[in-house]
Simulated assay, not measured.
Amino acid sequence: MPINIDRLDEEPADVLDLKEGTQPYRIVRFLAANDDKAYTQTELHEETGIKRGSVGAVLSRLENRGLVRHQGRYWAIAEDDRLASYAAQRGASSSSTTDDYYGEE
């Protein structure tokens, strides 16, 4: 189905709509959780379990969406307020499932 040509230049509303379990989701989740570091494609492959040959293509698509950035061989989460919020939400949801409430007095 064709779209209006004006939509090509607009930022997609679903830029952060990453489906859980997909390769882009896994990379963004990992980089957001480790936002103080940058990684090579090989390191991302090792950390996420994504096939080595697929990591570069995923990173390129994420970069086009403004979700990751790179310098030379190293990739990191983009500097974007939306991603900080995304990382905080991910951290809150994962900590709520791993908090140990037993033994509290």
Rank of each mutant, 00 (worst) to 15 (best):
Arg82Tyr: 02
Ala88Ser: 03
Ile5Asn: 08
Gly21Thr: 01
Leu62Phe: 04
Ala38Ser: 15
Glu43Tyr: 02
Asp14Val: 08
Gln71Ser: 14
Glu20Thr: 12
Lys37Arg: 14
Gly49Pro: 08
Thr40Phe: 05
Pro24Arg: 03
Arg61Asn: 14
Ile3Arg: 14
Ala84Asp: 13
Ala57Ile: 09
Ser96Gly: 02
Thr40Gln: 06
Ser60Gly: 10
Ala38Gln: 09
Val15Arg: 15
Ser93Thr: 15
Glu79Gln: 12
Ser96Glu: 11
Arg52Met: 12
Arg82Thr: 05
Gly103Ile: 07
Gly72Cys: 03
Ala38Trp: 01
Gly56Trp: 02
Asp99Lys: 13
Asp9Asn: 10
Val15Phe: 09
Arg7Asn: 10
Phe30Pro: 02
Arg90Cys: 03
Thr97Trp: 04
Ser93His: 09
Glu105Met: 06
Thr42Val: 08
Gln71Asn: 13
Asp9Gly: 14
Gln23Lys: 15
Gln23Arg: 15
Tyr25Met: 06
Asp100Ser: 07
Arg29Tyr: 02
Lys37Trp: 01
Leu59His: 07
Gln41Cys: 12
Leu44Lys: 08
Leu67Trp: 04
Arg90Val: 10
His70Ile: 03
Tyr102Gly: 11
Asp99Arg: 15
Ala92Gly: 00
Ser54Gly: 01
Asn64Arg: 13
Ala87Trp: 01
Arg69Pro: 00
Val58Thr: 15
Val55Arg: 01
Gln41Ile: 14
Gly49Ala: 10
Arg90Trp: 06
Ala87Met: 03
Val58Tyr: 02
Val28Ile: 15
Lys51Phe: 11
Lys19Tyr: 05
Leu16Pro: 01
Thr42Gly: 00
Thr48Gly: 04
Leu8Asn: 08
His45Glu: 13
Pro12Val: 13
Tyr102Ile: 11
Ala33Ser: 15
Ser94Val: 12
Ser95Lys: 10
Glu10Arg: 14
Thr22Val: 08
Glu104Val: 13
Tyr25Gln: 09
Leu62Arg: 02
Val15Leu: 10
Val68Leu: 08
Arg69Ile: 02
Gly72Trp: 03
Gly56Gln: 08
Lys51Trp: 10
Asp17Phe: 06
Pro12Gln: 09
Glu46Asp: 15
Thr22Tyr: 08
Gly72Ile: 03
Ser95Asn: 07
Gly21Gln: 03
Phe30Asn: 03
Leu18Ile: 00
Ala76Gln: 10
Asp80Phe: 00
Ala38Glu: 09
Ser60Lys: 14
Asp6Leu: 12
Ile3Leu: 15
Leu8Lys: 10
Ala32Met: 07
Gly72Asn: 08
Gly21Arg: 04
Lys51Ser: 14
Tyr39Asp: 07
Asn4Ile: 04
Thr40Arg: 06
